[in-house]
């Protein structure tokens, strides 16, 4: 069963001028099965974080228009009021954001922040909430959990803060955990610990996971499937092993080659991707990657290619490129 089913999601922000608008997410569809972990890989401006904020219904304040369908656990979230959505946030879907220092309220102790929704919505009193919070801190591997509850965010190290943020996200036992670049702001040695922590919690608590990152190394170890986003669209999606073995989209391939890797002997020059990612106010015609693509042909600028399954033998491997993955005669999917 799918915990999350997103279909044809589109997010448009009003531009600075009245007649311009920014479409940051374009026709994004994906599913996350119960207990599954999906990696969403993309650079800044690829629409990966916007997609998740739209799922949580948190783009309203920014004045964005969201269209498409978001079904969580059988409920269509786009049909809910803000108040009903609040019932889903936290208790149905937990969010871990990137920079734990700015994601924690600097003026409130850890314990108070953690306990807030537990007391307000889950029927805890202060004492039982404190017990639960200490238990959660222990679960995420923070020693001397009781004492830590009184600490303020600035008194903890970066890794500790990220653990607190994770504890907060799972405190109401969500079915789906969305982690947006949870390790980017951390030291390398802490990164892998936090990543493994998230992986363990997902298994133990039987959550589905959406892991948003720009780092292919991060998703390689802990996800079942990967969706690669570029210019607001999903350009490729496949099982993790399949994607790394046989990347189909030119962008995915270029990304894999242009990242310097520790386990590879360096060549002289990195095959860097030339040019800049598209700006949502001026998307290129046709394929979003076409201006930077070495394989681009004339027709790439004509229309946005379909997300198609080039090889029936590799079910579930979808690529949005007519050059490397020509649409087969039948069975085209979007």
């Amino acid at each position: 069963m799918n915990v999350l089913d997103v279909a044809h999601l589109e997010v448009t922000h009003p531009g600075h001028d009245h007649d311009s608008s920014l479409t940051t997410v374009r026709d994004v569809s994906f599913r996350v099965a119960a207990g599954e972990s999906l990696g969403v890989v993309g650079e800044s401006g690829s629409g990966k974080s916007q997609t998740m904020l739209a799922v949580l219904g948190m783009l309203g304040r920014a004045g964005a228009t969201v269209s498409g369908r978001v079904t969580f656990d059988g409920t269509d979230l786009t049909a809910l009021t803000q108040k009903q959505l609040r019932g889903i946030r936290g208790s149905g879907i937990g969010l871990v954001s990137q920079d734990a220092l700015s994601a924690l309220n600097p003026a409130m102790s850890i314990g108070k922040q953690m306990a807030e929704p537990l007391i307000r919505y889950d029927g805890h009193n202060r004492r039982t909430a404190a017990d639960r919070c200490a238990e959660l801190l222990q679960l995420v591997g923070i020693p001397a959990a009781r004492e830590r509850l009184r600490a303020y965010p600035h008194q903890l190290s970066g890794g500790m803060r990220q653990r607190v943020l994770i504890a907060m996200a799972i405190s109401r036992e969500p079915k789906l955990l969305i982690a947006d670049e949870p390790t980017t702001a951390l030291d390398v040695s802490i990164q892998s610990q936090v990543l493994r922590l998230i992986d363990r919690l997902r298994r133990e608590l039987d959550m589905a996971l959406v892991l948003i990152t720009h780092d292919l190394g991060v998703v390689a170890g802990v996800t079942d499937r990967i969706a690669v986003m570029y210019g607001g669209m999903i350009v490729e999606t496949a099982s993790t092993a399949e994607l790394f073995d046989a990347p189909g989209h030119p962008y995915t391939r270029a990304l894999m080659q242009s990242v310097p890797r520790m386990d590879r002997k360096p060549g002289d020059r990195l095959p860097a991707i030339p040019g800049l990612p598209p700006h949502p106010s001026a998307p290129p015609p046709g394929c979003a990657f076409q201006p930077r693509c070495t394989l681009a042909r004339d027709e790439c600028g004509d229309s946005v290619p379909l997300l198609a399954e080039p090889d029936p033998a590799r079910a579930g491997h979808l690529v949005r490129c007519p050059v490397t993955a020509p649409v087969p005669a039948e069975g085209a999917r979007t």
């Binding site: 390398v188 040695s189 802490i190 990164q191 892998s192 780092d215 190394g217 890797r261």
Partner: peptide, 16 residues
């Protein structure tokens, strides 16, 4: 060694 081992490698076969 600890530093090098902590780096996530973009290779699914190197799962933790």
């Amino acid at each position: 060694r600890a530093l090098l081992r902590a780096v996530p490698v973009p290779d699914p076969r190197a799962r933790p």
